[in-house]
Amino acid sequence: MIRLEDVHKSFGRQTVLDGVDLEIERGKTTVIIGRSGGGKSVLLKHIIGLMKPDSGRIFIDDVDIAQLNDRDLNEIRKKFGMLFQEAALFDSMTVGENVAFPLREHTPYREDEIRRIVSERLQAVGLTGVEEKMPAELSGGMRKRVGLARAVALNPEIVLFDEPTTGLDPVMTEAINRLIIDTQKRFQLTCVVISHDIQSIFEIGHRIAMLYEGKIIAHGSPDEIRTSANPVIAQFLSGSIEGPIKIV
């Protein structure tokens, strides 16, 4: 489904990705964990072509997107949905217009059909009657749910989540996690989730990959990761300050 081969990326002198190899399976939720500022978001942006690698290849369904031109890349992107860290709703548009945006861009649906799909998607994330509100009037959790509704509006095959639960209270965190699990099951999605919220990781992940110093140092099922002997993973999971991970 998604395969990264030897992906390198650096900004100036700072190397962020230093030979990442990763295969993400179809129909499963893969969680990528790692330190804050450790390049997880950069990795995610490479998967969807927002950034191009310095070297290496990124295959989506056997197409190397690092070599594609804009037009072909846009075709590939229609398979994707993405939920951004702060939801990234367009604040000049109402909630309804936000969810309708991808539909208006890429489908020939009539206005009443679009309205129906929008309210359906919003209902699926547990929101009703918010179509006419502006994003600024919503709470953080509601914004994320609207973001999710927008991400799945076009029935994508793959959905990317950039720290979906960061900055939410425990109740809302749980609600979002449930939503991710439900959505994944319902649409048989391939999900890639970035997180460092340990509790959520094991709740939603079928596969877990750890990114450390620009490389994937472990990739396996939650149980494998939990019982891993790797001192880096052990320290990361326990949240101890003693260990190979240096605090800078």
């Binding site: 702060e86 990234a88 604040d91």
Partner: peptide, 21 residues
């Protein structure tokens, strides 16, 4: 200011992701 805000809140990335230039 508007485009800058859209950039730092990833709204511009969101546009690209939705295959909208």
């Amino acid at each position: 200011a508007e485009l800058g805000t859209m950039r730092v809140t990833e709204q511009i990335d969101a546009l690209s992701v939705m295959a909208a230039n």
